[in-house]
């Protein structure tokens, strides 16, 4: 097939998305809907019900925007993991139903790797060290001999979760990230908070607890937000720098929902410059969770010979980045 059309389905956490991608790398459409809990954090069952209820509408909108019909689709890709079980099962069920009814191949994609691949596509990077930061994941990833290796990661909560929970506890309305960033810009005084880097790994739970405690002690919220960001981001950048020095790669990429933060971008930019590396951030609409990254990675895997049987498509909640055989890149 010269130019195949892949429909990618994303569903690992809040977002249900469908993207339609051509095998030459052109993204024809990328539409999604995001579940926002009425209060508190994400409830996996509620999220999956939201996804199921909206799946058809999202699919139709993606097809309309791409100006294609279902019969034009040559391949169905879906986020097989990692993520929340009920949510993953909704996405994989939708993918199986589509693939069977269209009689096209199906391929399960690793969500974390999809974030890297869509960035490599749009930013045209060759071989970056990637800092992937979101509400569900925090990893420093680099390719080495056939696999995406995790050089460092969080030992407890992801950075996005740290920021979300802090915002909620401090009474900052959803979405917390942008508001914390705005507050932090007005913060002046640094309040010492726990900085935890263990070898190449990170930990944010103690930092979050302490930052919340500072708000209860009636410290200026702007100073707490500033101190929280500075501490957490310094740790992220330090581990990324170590991975960069260790692998001797010349590119750094930032992706995931937290990539929206301009202070984090700035810090990585400064670090990369010091290490003689180039710095990349994909457009924000491709940093967050969406279907196009799943579709594109599905194409890469399929074209390099990956095939999947129907009974291999069950959700993989804990599917690790470094378990995936990356058949589409040279060892």
């Amino acid at each position: 097939m010269v130019n195949m059309l892949c429909l990618g389905i994303e569903g690992t956490a809040h977002t249900f998305g469908v993207g339609i991608v051509k095998s030459d790398g052109k993204i024809l459409s990328n539409f999604s809907k995001t579940y926002v809990p009425e209060k508190g954090g994400i409830h996996p069952r509620d999220a999956s019900q939201f996804h199921a209820a909206n799946a058809r509408a999202v699919l139709d909108e993606a097809l309309t925007q791409a100006n294609v019909e279902l019969k034009d689709i040559d391949l169905v890709a879906f986020s097989q993991g990692p993520g929340l079980g009920p949510v993953l099962r909704t996405a994989s069920t939708a993918a199986r139903a589509l693939a069977i009814s269209l009689d096209v191949p199906i391929i399960g994609v690793n969500h974390c790797i999809a974030h890297i691949e869509i960035g490599r596509l749009t930013e045209n990077t060759k071989d970056p060290v990637t800092l992937y930061v979101s509400g569900g994941n925090t990893q420093v990833i680099a390719f080495d001999t056939g696999k995406y290796r995790v050089f460092g990661e969080t030992l407890d909560i992801p950075i996005g979760n740290c920021l979300d929970v802090f915002a909620r506890e401090a009474g900052i309305p959803h979405p917390g990230g942008p508001k914390i960033e705005r507050l932090a810009k007005e913060g002046k005084k640094y309040i010492p908070l726990p900085y935890v880097v263990k070898g190449m790994d990170l930990s944010f739970s103690g930092l979050m607890t302490e930052a919340v405690r500072m708000t209860r002690l009636k410290k200026d919220l702007r100073d707490v937000a500033f101190s929280l960001q500075e501490t957490a981001f310094a740790a992220l950048v330090e581990v990324t720098e170590r991975a960069l020095a260790h692998t001797e790669k010349k590119e750094v990429m930032l992706t995931g929902g937290v990539a929206a933060n301009t202070r984090l971008r700035e810090m990585l930019q400064v670090m990369a410059k010091g290490q003689g590396a180039k710095f990349f951030v994909p457009p924000m609409e491709l940093c967050g969770d969406q279907g196009a990254m799943i579709g594109w990675t599905g194409i890469l895997a399929y074209k390099s010979g990956s095939k999947q049987k129907m009974d291999e498509t069950q959700a993989r909640q804990r599917w690790r980045t470094d378990e995936v055989e990356v058949t589409w890149r040279e060892k």
Partner: peptide
């Protein structure tokens, strides 16, 4: 010193 982080954190570390 690392320029990407604020002085307070940099010196402490």
């Amino acid at each position: 010193p690392k320029e990407y982080r604020i002085k307070e954190i940099d010196e402490k570390l």
